Simulated scan of single mutants.
Amino acid sequence: MLTRKQLELLSFIKLRTETDGVPPSFDEMKEALDLKSKSGIHRLITALEERGFIRRLAHRARALEIIKLPDAMERPGYKAPSFTPKVIEGSKKEAPAAAPRAPVPATIHALELPVMGRIAAGVPIEAISEISHHVAVPGTMLAGRGNHYALEVKGDSMIDAGINDGDIVVILEQVTAENGDIVVALIEEQEATLKRYRRKGSMIALEAANPAYETRVLPEDQVKVQGRLVGLIRSY
């Protein structure tokens, strides 16, 4: 998974490349992310390169190329977040005359979400109740208002839905679901699992996205929805 600063930098590089036709300079990246030195940008660039998101090209000015984006940014209909660098009044010297740049609009936001342990994408595991750590999540991944939390996926029953073992899923806390939603379901107050939700009369079907796993059909009073999947973060 990417840190908040890594996500901000990747988004900023993408935005400036699309608006200007070339990646930003290291000085521009330093100013945009409000870092004190370019060494911090070098570390972020190296981390993004090691994770396979960007590539440095030899013998070229501003030689950065985006190779891939996080899963959430590659989904159909996704609109990349805008980014506004922090500006301190009077702290920047007048630059030489140059072609005007397109204005860079809003700010990208990243929020720290609690990771509430592991969720089974396979055989259900015991209910999750304790925070294990926190993870930075782009604000654009969150579903508007409401409480969100994150879970680490364990198992492979949702691989055909693009959810792999070890992924971090972002969950909007809610107690209801529509047919087809991927939800965190609490079974008999003891087991938590990540499955696709289907209501069939007074029964609830929890469907896997892997033919190796059977659909579980349970009475509605044995299943409690604890949240709906709204995003996914993958580590490489």
Rank of each mutant, 00 (worst) to 15 (best):
G180W: 03
I182N: 01
I182S: 00
I182M: 01
I182Q: 00
V183H: 01
V184L: 11
V184Y: 06
A185T: 00
A185Y: 00
A185W: 00
L186N: 10
L186A: 03
L186Q: 04
L186Y: 02
L186S: 05
L186M: 11
I187L: 14
I187A: 06
I187F: 09
I187V: 15
I187D: 05
I187H: 08
E188N: 14
E188K: 12
E188P: 00
E188T: 11
E188A: 15
E188M: 10
E188W: 08
E188F: 03
E189M: 09
E189Q: 13
E189S: 13
E189D: 15
E189V: 01
Q190I: 07
Q190G: 05
Q190Y: 04
Q190A: 12
Q190E: 15
Q190W: 00
Q190H: 11
E191K: 12
E191S: 11
E191G: 02
E191C: 02
A192N: 10
A192S: 14
A192V: 02
A192Q: 04
A192C: 09
T193P: 07
T193G: 06
L194N: 05
L194V: 08
L194M: 10
K195P: 07
K195C: 02
K195W: 01
R196K: 14
R196S: 10
R196W: 06
Y197C: 04
Y197F: 15
R198V: 04
R198E: 12
R198S: 03
R198F: 15
R198A: 05
R199H: 04
R199D: 04
R199T: 08
R199N: 03
K200F: 03
K200W: 02
K200I: 09
K200H: 09
G201H: 06
G201M: 09
G201F: 06
S202H: 13
S202W: 05
S202C: 02
S202Y: 07
M203C: 02
M203V: 03
I204G: 02
I204R: 03
I204Q: 06
A205P: 03
A205K: 10
A205M: 12
L206D: 01
L206I: 04
L206G: 02
L206T: 01
E207A: 10
E207W: 03
E207H: 07
A208R: 07
A208S: 15
A208M: 10
A208N: 11
N210G: 12
N210E: 13
N210R: 11
P211R: 13
P211V: 14
P211Y: 12
P211S: 13
A212D: 15
A212Y: 12
A212E: 15
Y213L: 07
Y213C: 06
Y213R: 05
E214C: 09
E214S: 15
E214F: 12
E214N: 14
E214P: 07
E214Y: 10
E214L: 13
T215D: 11
T215K: 14
T215H: 09
R216S: 14
R216H: 11
R216M: 13
R216C: 03
V217Y: 06
V217A: 11
V217W: 05
V217H: 06
L218I: 03
L218D: 00
L218G: 01
L218N: 02
P219M: 08
P219N: 08
P219T: 07
P219A: 09
P219D: 09
P219F: 11
P219C: 09
P219Y: 10
P219Q: 07
P219R: 09
E220P: 03
E220D: 15
E220F: 12
D221C: 04
D221A: 08
D221V: 06
D221Q: 12
